[in-house]
Design a protein around this nucleic acid. Structure first.
Lengths: 126, 126
DNA sequence: CCTGCTGGTTCCTATCGGAAACCTAGCCTG
DNA sequence: CAGGCTAGGTTTCCGATAGGAACCAGCAGG
């Protein structure tokens, strides 16, 4: 029983799969979430997102920009100021992202508990 | 203006962040989607998901199992048969995953178009 | 002239991803 | 009874990637 049609995110060559792989990335989800309430500066994101390095943040932002999900605004000031914001296309992602993050908030502890109880589930010796 | 509370998936040490990073992975989303309609065999997943290798599929499945999102059922037959299915906890992910995949299906082409029109957005020379 | 602020890039290494080969175990075929 | 088939999994190897630390640009202020 697998009623998956041809538009489903299987079969590596479909655009939907590319789109999934674009956002299914360690930092992408968190960055998009960070932008979901309005324009944010590079440095703000760095401080907001614990654990991300400048390099990975820039890399993630560039990729999202190249794919049309966010827009970059560099102000010719000193010290420099750069803001990122969602494009209309990127804004269509807010709902899915919020569902994910709310799931994570609701179930994060359960996931941790399972991992704790089950570090190496039965070590499938077959 | 960034009204992100302390439970938000920022600040690397919170369980929600771990949960996000668990599923925000190239293959995880697709695998979970593949399991969203009922138990599926290892080999079926391989054929269904274009481009995944046995190694990565096994690895992904093991990780999801360890985190309590799926369950593994090995039947003592020859040739061997192994089925994977969502746990109740894993089932709570179906909705978020479906939102993501539907977004991807609806906007995959737009993303590709943007990438096509904008391979290297302005090459920020500042 | 030296320091600081901000965004970004370079260098280098540890880790990851992926293809292909191999393994297990039992049944089936010649 | 030697070999081949099956299905799930592991191992090996190597190129690609992630990621931190350090460095750079450019100007204001002391």
């Amino acid at each position: 029983m697998s009623g998956f049609g041809p538009g489903d995110p299987f079969l590596a060559d479909c655009p939907a799969r590319l789109a999934v792989e674009l956002i299914a990335d360690k930092w992408t989800v968190v960055v998009l979430y960070g932008l979901s309430e309005g324009p944010v500066r590079h440095g703000e994101l760095i401080e907001l997102i614990g654990g991300i390095s400048r390099k990975m943040l820039t890399q993630t932002l560039r990729r999202l920009e190249a794919h049309g999900l966010i827009r970059r605004h560099a102000y010719a000031e000193v010290p420099p100021r750069v803001e990122y914001e969602l494009t209309p296309l990127g804004a269509t992602l807010i709902d899915p992202i919020h569902m994910l993050t709310e799931w994570a908030r609701a179930n994060g502890d359960a996931v941790l508990d399972a991992l704790d109880a089950d570090p190496d589930p039965v070590a499938h010796s077959d």
